[in-house]
Design a protein around this nucleic acid. Structure first.
Length: 431
RNA sequence: GGAGAACUUGUUGC
């Protein structure tokens, strides 16, 4: 506004940047309005601006609008490019809307669209997700003919997405196929593989990969060990955690802040506060600086198992060392206070966080709703929920779930059922 | 010189 007032007309880049900023902040509505306004007072945002809006619409789950916007682009004087198509393909794939995805791919083929390597990756990912191995294989071949051979990047991307989807058998297939194709797995790929196994709760198998790495002379790094420690901590005894921690040291791998956060979390979740404080001391002794993750993890552990003054003390330390509390810190404390039944205190803290300029997020709001429910305040909970619903950002399963749980506990079944319908209408899929 | 997608490890809500 200042620019326009002073007669300095924003150019295309400025306009696109502004649209991008609103999109990144999750304010799609504002971004859409901006599109019109900019056309009047400055320059119409171009391709980049439009792409930002598509991504933002997808991110908040407004698929139909995103697609409509994408399809209407030519009429709005903005022809989609490779980047745009690839984005849409990626998003459709992520959303599991495979029918729409394949229809789009078919249409693009008809129109003679020329994909780039990233497009291939996205499309292959779609086929892989649909279990269409044959088509995926054909595309991999086609891609290697038209572009460079599928490098570790492509395989890694595909395996990561399979792993994320929990399709471990397919991911292993792909891994084998890659090795048969003569590609030697590198550290990054091993780390990725360990990571999907860990995410799937298979830490024993993950440890087998470590053995394979050691056998093949591919040295694990701190990321490898961190993933393993995380996995072992989730599924095995603390002895096994200790064993891996020692193993890592014997191999000369220096633990970093991530390592310590993982350890603090695992020991904290099991209520082993002595070990938690011991590890925290050790890390500082060894000259490893705690970061936000470390402090947050520590605060959570300490707050769950001990008096609240320890947590307040940590909060002050954080400020002192230049690592001030963030949303997650406040979320941890608000949830912790709620669990102790100190709902009023939690609300005060919420106010303090806002005053301090820390913007609450979805998790803050669902925590507050759950907290209000603990006090039987379902009306206030519903009120804040309705307030939130005016924004795009309310499209979150857990937020709906929290509200529904509160309503059900208070016997407000009609409202709860209404909520279920509302979320479906919003395109938020109940879990 | 400034804006855009997917791409390995840790913390928070039902």
């Amino acid at each position: 506004s200042k620019m326009v007032q002073q007669g300095c007309k924003p150019d295309v880049v400025a306009c696109n940047s502004l649209v991008s900023a609103y999109c990144k902040a999750g304010q799609v509505e504002a971004a859409l309005n901006l599109l019109e306004e900019l056309k009047q007072i400055a320059t119409s945002p171009t391709l980049l601006g439009h792409e930002c809006i598509i991504i933002a619409l997808f991110k908040v789950g407004r698929f139909e609008e995103a697609l409509k916007f994408y399809n209407n682009m030519p009429e709005n004087g903005c022809t989609p490019g490779v980047y745009t198509h690839t984005t849409v393909i990626n998003e459709l794939c992520r959303a599991g809307q495979l029918d729409t995805l394949f229809a789009l791919i078919f249409r693009l083929q008809q129109e003679g669209f020329i994909p780039n390597a990233s497009t291939y990756v996205a499309v292959i990912e779609g086929f892989v997700k649909a279990g269409e191995w044959g088509k995926a294989g054909i595309l991999i071949t086609e891609m290697s003919r038209k572009h460079s051979a599928p490098g570790p990047g492509l395989y890694n991307h595909l395996m990561a997405s399979l792993g994320r989807a929990g399709e471990l058998n397919d991911a292993c297939d792909l891994f084998r196929r890659m090795e048969q194709g003569g590609l030697v797995p590198n550290l990054l790929m091993y780390n990725c593989s360990i990571n999907w196994l860990v995410k799937a709760g298979k830490s024993v198998e993950a440890c087998m990969i470590l053995e394979e790495m050691e056998a093949k002379k591919c040295s694990p790094d701190v990321v490898t060990y961190n993933s393993l420690l995380h996995g072992i901590g989730k599924t095995c005894s603390l002895d096994k955690v200790q064993e891996m921690y020692t193993h890592m040291a014997t191999k000369g791998c220096i633990p970093d802040a991530v390592t310590y956060s993982i350890l603090l979390d695992t020991y904290g979740k099991r209520g082993r506060l002595d070990e938690v404080w011991g590890l925290f001391r050790e890390m500082k002794q060894k000259g490893c600086a705690p970061d936000l993750y470390t402090y947050n993890t520590l605060i959570k552990s300490v707050f769950n198992g001990g008096p609240s003054r320890e947590a307040s003390r940590l909060l002050k330390t954080m400020e002192k060392v230049g690592c001030p509390a963030d949303v997650i810190t406040y979320n941890i404390l608000i949830a912790g206070l709620g669990k102790r039944g100190q709902i009023k205190k939690a609300l005060n803290l919420f106010e303090r966080m806002v005053v301090k300029g820390c913007a609450p997020d979805l998790i803050t709001h669902s925590t507050l709703i759950t907290n209000l429910g603990r006090d039987g305040e379902w009306m206030s909970a519903l009120e804040s929920f309705r307030h939130l619903q005016k924004q795009d950002t309310c499209n979150d399963v857990v937020l709906f779930n929290s509200m529904i749980t509160v309503l059900c506990k208070e016997g407000q079944l009609a409202e709860a059922l209404h909520m279920l319908t509302a979320m479906e209408e919003k395109g938020c899929i109940p879990n």
